[in-house]
Amino acid sequence: MTQRIGPVALILAVVGLALPWLVYPVVAIDLACFALFAVSLDLLFGFVGLLSFGQALFWGGGGYLAAITLARTHVDAGIAIVIGIVYAMLLAAIVGAIAVRRAGIYFAMITLGVAQIQYFSAFQLTDITGGENGLNLHSRGTLFGFALENDRLYYYVALVLIALAVWFAVRLVRSPFGGVLRAMRENETRTIALGYRVNRYKLAVFTIAGGLAGLAGALYAIGNHLAGLEMVDWHTSGAVVMMTVLGGVGTIFGPIVGAGLFESLDYFVSKMGAFDFFGVHIPSIGEETNMVMGFVFALCVLLFRRGIVGEILARVGKRPGSG
């Protein structure tokens, strides 16, 4: 088992360590946070078969709560992050209690609907969230007494937390608990017949995934000194779904690759200036990165539904997601 994920994990670890020296450190922070965010979605979509189209609820919720805590108090950033996670998990437990009884499109719609409620609340509770101006932080504060202002230092701190969270997710899906999840995916009725309370398992995963997204969001907000409306927008929920599917649903590491690819594509496309495409002059497509993403994603859904890592695993003869 370990030798199978070994190479992937090793490559990711090396890239993770080298990243802030390869790209601008703040970009590296964003990338790492999105990677964990995508993992949280994969945990849900890949292992329970529930597609959340409102995962920004937890990402943004965790981000806002952490930022609000840091802006209003002088507590340690660690406490702010924990508050962000707890809030995201609480939300997930409440929403999950309603949502996990439904599947497919309905599940996607409930999560989207609740996420929209939070979006509008964040927009309108300007005294708390800053509304459309966002909530800017003067500093990242300190973690266990260490100042976090250096971007690379912050990146490595975040990387440790994110690596721990991903490790936890991998352990989870490889545990007996994960075995039940797989059984549920393959034949829900039989699993129920075997005496498992399926909805409780789903709720547990939903809550854990919410917590992971909350952690990712908190790290992102603190890293950027900013919690803004983008964090709770449904486009963000859509983007993380794209990352996950692009990387490979149900592979845990795939979404990390997907997030990396997505963010770097975004970064480079947005840096592209005007250019000529087969004689047609294209002005800057800075804001048109979505077009490129959408195109790549459409191809992925049509032709490579297993995603990049899923496809690679399948090619080397190993069934993805089979533990």
Partner: peptide
């Protein structure tokens, strides 16, 4: 799964809008 249609049309939105 109808979810895949949801995903594809989501991608189409991004492309058409841009």
């Amino acid at each position: 799964d109808p979810i895949y249609n949801l995903l594809l049309t989501f991608a189409l939105v991004l492309v058409i809008e841009d």
